[in-house]
Structures are given as structure tokens and as C-alpha cells.
Design a binder for these strands. Structure first.
Lengths: 205, 205
DNA sequence: GTCTATAGCCAGATAGAC
DNA sequence: GTCTATCTGGCTATAGAC
């Protein structure tokens, strides 16, 4: 029993190491250009061993995305700091977290287009459940923020939700980081501002 | 002489047909998932014939992107309609044009990440020249719009420029179109608004 | 469950006849 | 310049020994 639990722990640690490698490679090159050989090399095990843990390359990526959604759910459900009481402030906080992940090179980017990956994701109950839970929570905040007068009521909540999700594959943070001129924090704040406040000037508050 | 010019015209028309197919496929599946066989099939010629016109898959995509930049340059240099006199209005007009291309499924999407395509683009004088010309023109408008008080002066022009370029690979229009609930025009206006005005409410003008 | 070795496949690119 | 047929390399996935 203790022995079994120990082995199971070893298994989970190894699989977590695999998913960390997958996550990094997905952030770096995306699904199509990531090869299973690279994943195995980065983890330091043989490719065949990988396939004992995950059935396919798609399953590998799906597991990494499920882990990302679990972390997102944890962020969304964490108790708010007192300074972030409104729905709008909580939304901003989540977007800021996602942008920080992106700048740090830890945001796995999936192809939004055609791919065998899409089919795998759409048939993964874990993935779909988590995605729905995150979307429902964010959707509630969006509706609340609109009722509070903080988010433009002319935009359907669906448009706001997609726009926020799209920050997860926004190329701007990576480009700005590539110039080497700005700090990570500065980049995050600029992209956050362009998303929430827009490019246009706003009258002083 | 006339004969030669005629043959050259036939050549250009054929190559334009090829690039139109490439453009559509790039918009549909992206560079990595597009296959040269598909391009040949869509044009209705053999794959080997394609390679008489373009040296590689990368060259094929690069040529399509050059054509896109040429069209962009034409839009940027076209005389403004009287109602769009300010730099900000001209910028908005260009972004709207790009979003309309996107919704119509005619915006080729290149992988912003690692790829053999990047190397090809960086070694294409045509591509780099056009990209610089477009960027300079847009950059001038951005600076002017900031001087006019229309664009947030806390954002460096570079950040504004990248944010505008990023609209070319924004997944939101395609997602919204996928719901089948909204008209193309409605989608363009919402995304344009979220980009320029932001998600936050603005005080009435 | 880990490894080495390899099967099987697919896509980019080319040979060579016409 | 167009075609058919083929080469080549790389990648996913698996066989089989330990």
C-alpha cells in the first residue's frame, strides 16, 4: 500500500516532468513543429518510454493544456486580494497573469486552425469540462463588470470572453520581448492596457 | 517581341493563380499544415510544375506574403476619402480593411514562431523592403495621431504598430464567424472597437 | 517501464520523358 | 513547362529484448 502509493508518486512526478517539457516546447515552437523526439530528449528518456505514459503526440499536448486550465481555474478561484474587489479588477488580474505566463515563455500555444489536435481536445472530457468551468466563471465576471459600468455594454459578453482568451496567443508580447528593449513587467502592462483601454486616448479620469 | 510579351503575361497570370491558391490555403490552415500537393491540386497543375515557378514551399508562401504587402501598400497610399482626414481615421480604415480580409478568409496567416519560413522571409529583399515601407507609413500616422491627441501617448509607437500588425493574425474574428450568429460587418466593427477603444467603458463623448 | 532498432507513412523535392 | 513516377528524409508510432 505504502509501496504502491510511492510508486504512484514517482509516476506522477515523472509525468509532470514530461508535461513541463511539453509545455515549454509548445510555447516555443507550437504543436506542429514540436517533435516527440525533442520532448523525450528534454525529459532525458527514450521516446518509446513516453508512449507508455501518453498514447499519442496529441494526448501529450492535450494533457499539457489540461494542466494549464487547472492552473487557470486555481487562479480564478483563488480569493481576491482586498484591492481587487470588483469583477473588472479580477478580470484584469487574470489577464495580467496570462500575459506574464506568455512573456515568460510558459504559455503553450495551440494552433487555432485545423489540426488533429482539435479532434483530440474536443473528445477530451477533462479538457472540455475545465474549459467550460473557466468560461462560466469569467463569463459571470464579464456580465457583472458590464452591470457595474466597467466594461463596454455594446460588446456581447461572448466577444469580450474571446478577446480575453485571445491574449493567450497574442504575438505582441513575444515580439516586444524580442527587441530586448523593455522589461517583462513593462511589456505586460502595455499589452494589458492596449487590451482593456484600447489604443485611443482616454480623457483624464 | 509581342509574342514574348504575351508569353510573359500568361506566365504572370498563372503565377497569380498559384499565389491566390496559396493565399487561400495559408488563410485556411497556415503554413505548416498547408501541403504543396494541395496547392497543386487547387491550381489544377502537377506538383512538379509548381517547382518550375517557385523554388520551395517557403518561396511559395513568401511570394504570397509579398503580394499581400503590395496590396497593403496600395491601400495605405490610396488617397483618403474626405471623411477620413486625420491620421487616426486613416489608421482605423487600414485596420478595418485588414479585419475584413480576415473575416473573408483571405488573410494568410504565417506562424509567428520558429520556422524555415522565417529564414526565407528575412532573406527576401522584396519582403523586407515592402515591410519597411508599410511600417514607415503607419509609423508616421501613429506619431501624428499621438500628436493630435487621438492615440494614447503612454504607448510607444512601436507597441501601437505591433498591436495593429497583430490584428492580422487575431483568432477572434474567425471564432466569432464560426458561431454563425453575427454578420461579417458586425464582427469587424466589434473587433475594431475592442482594438482601438478597448474593452472598458468610455465616458460618453 | 526502460531501452534500441525499425516499421510505416507522408510530404518536399527531383528525374526524365514529352 | 508540363506531366508521371520516384527519391529522400524526417516524424509518429511500435516491436521486442532486458
Amino acid at each position: 500500500m505504502g509501496r504502491l502509493a510511492f510508486r504512484e508518486q514517482v509516476l506522477r512526478v515523472r509525468e509532470d516532468a514530461i508535461l513541463t517539457a511539453v509545455n515549454r516546447l509548445l510555447a516555443d515552437k507550437g504543436f506542429d513543429l514540436m517533435t516527440v523526439d525533442e520532448v523525450a530528449a528534454e525529459v532525458g528518456i527514450a521516446k518509446a518510454s513516453l508512449y507508455k505514459h501518453f498514447a499519442s503526440k496529441e494526448a501529450l499536448a492535450a494533457a499539457a493544456l489540461v494542466r494549464l486550465l487547472e492552473r487557470t481555474m486555481a487562479v480564478v478561484e483563488s480569493p481576491p486580494v482586498p484591492a481587487e474587489a470588483t469583477a473588472f479588477q479580477r478580470l484584469r488580474s487574470v489577464v495580467r497573469w496570462a500575459l506574464a505566463l506568455q512573456v515568460a515563455g510558459e504559455m503553450p500555444s495551440l494552433p487555432s486552425q485545423n489540426s488533429s489536435l482539435r479532434a483530440e481536445l474536443l473528445s477530451s472530457k477533462d479538457y472540455l469540462d475545465l474549459l467550460m468551468r473557466v468560461s462560466e466563471k469569467l463569463g459571470q465576471w464579464i456580465v457583472q463588470a458590464q452591470a457595474d459600468g466597467d466594461i463596454d455594454t455594446r460588446l456581447p459578453p461572448e466577444v469580450v470572453l474571446y478577446t480575453i482568451y485571445a491574449r493567450g496567443c497574442d504575438p505582441v508580447p513575444v515580439f516586444l520581448k524580442g527587441t530586448g528593449q523593455y522589461s517583462d513587467e513593462q511589456i505586460v502592462e502595455w499589452v494589458l492596457s492596449s487590451c482593456l483601454d484600447g489604443l485611443r486616448s482616454r480623457p483624464a479620469a
